[in-house]
Design a protein around this nucleic acid. Structure first.
Lengths: 175, 175
DNA sequence: CTTGTTAAGTTCCATTTTGGAACCTATATT
DNA sequence: AATATAGGTTCCAAAATGGAACTTAACAAG
């Protein structure tokens, strides 16, 4: 499988990764959340080359993760803003940042802290179970087949890589 | 700035992204969480070439996100297992998967669901404030400087890209 | 009206990364 | 002695990336 075929996988992590799991894209998205939205500002803040940035922004436009918004009528200049789909990636940014804060700061502590506006405290965002509210850890979750996979199985839309993966996850016999 | 210099940024998202924000690495990590841990199984499940996989696994070994575990004494075969640092990335996987479930499944629903072992229900993992327990959204958080950034400022360890970024985030004047 | 400036690209070309296929090595099986 | 298998490594072509120069549309200054 070539990299560009990962978007055809059934797994949601793979499909999402096929969009932003490459060089620069996550860093661009991070800047959009931080309100660095103009082409030249993004380019200078990252030090990325212009054509690379053009490429990444076009991909995000295609995927409707960002849209162009006219911010200067006279010069016809556009900034890149997150759509609802894009804003929904905030959890991804937060969680990646939390992991970096914990494991990559050499004991200096987080460079930036998140304050929860509603309660005024350091939010210290954590993943919890929507049902019982408990904090989730890797060992507290188990997997089961969802409707998306069932439908694909019925319609035989499962490719050989999917098959190999889910054979392992759900213990199907391998040929 | 070249891609390989992103690891020198102050921002935790940038530092984390410099490790797994490239082609294949997130997909490899996902398989390790799904207990696909042998070199050839990972290679065949992804369809990645062997030397590319070798490269990615070596990087994860260097970063101490995975370690090698002897699983076959006679053949001297090793599998790749997540360290504590690696297991801590489970939140990243879950959140990326959740986003994919919501935006990339064409209405078919999630291929895989998470069951919370403790309460037996569909976990539907959500980011919440550790202080008050409320669900967090992009608009409910604000940023403030943390000790990591303060120390770097005192020691003048801020590069020009950091400076440009934090000038924007915290409203410092630009030259 | 000519020159200059700025944001946002595009083009060209060299360098780096990735993909495909063949080859290598240690261990065990036939 | 030949074959199989996991886990690589090597070689080379193809694709992605980086650096620098060029382009375009809009206006501003002299």
């Amino acid at each position: 499988m070539r990299w560009e075929d990962t978007c055809n996988q059934t797994c949601s992590v793979a499909r999402a990764t096929s969009i932003f799991g490459d060089r620069w894209t996550l860093l661009v998205l991070r800047l959009l959340f931080l309100k660095v939205t103009k082409f030249s500002d993004i380019q200078q803040t990252l030090g990325i080359t212009k054509h690379r940035l053009t490429d990444r922004l076009n991909r995000l436009l295609e995927e409707e993760i960002v849209y162009k918004h006219l911010y200067d009528e006279t010069y016809k200049r556009y900034e890149y803003r997150l759509t609802e789909k894009g804003i929904d990636l905030y959890a991804v940014m937060i969680v990646i940042g939390q992991w970096g804060d914990k494991w990559l700061t050499d004991g200096d502590g987080a460079p930036v802290e998140y304050v929860h506006k509603n309660c005024g405290q350091n939010a210290n965002p954590a993943l919890t179970c929507s049902c019982c509210g408990e904090k989730l850890t890797a060992s507290s979750l188990s997997l089961r087949m969802g409707s998306g996979l069932q439908k694909k199985l019925e319609n035989e839309e499962i490719n050989k890589f999917d098959e190999k993966l889910y054979a392992n996850v759900f213990g199907w016999e391998k040929k």
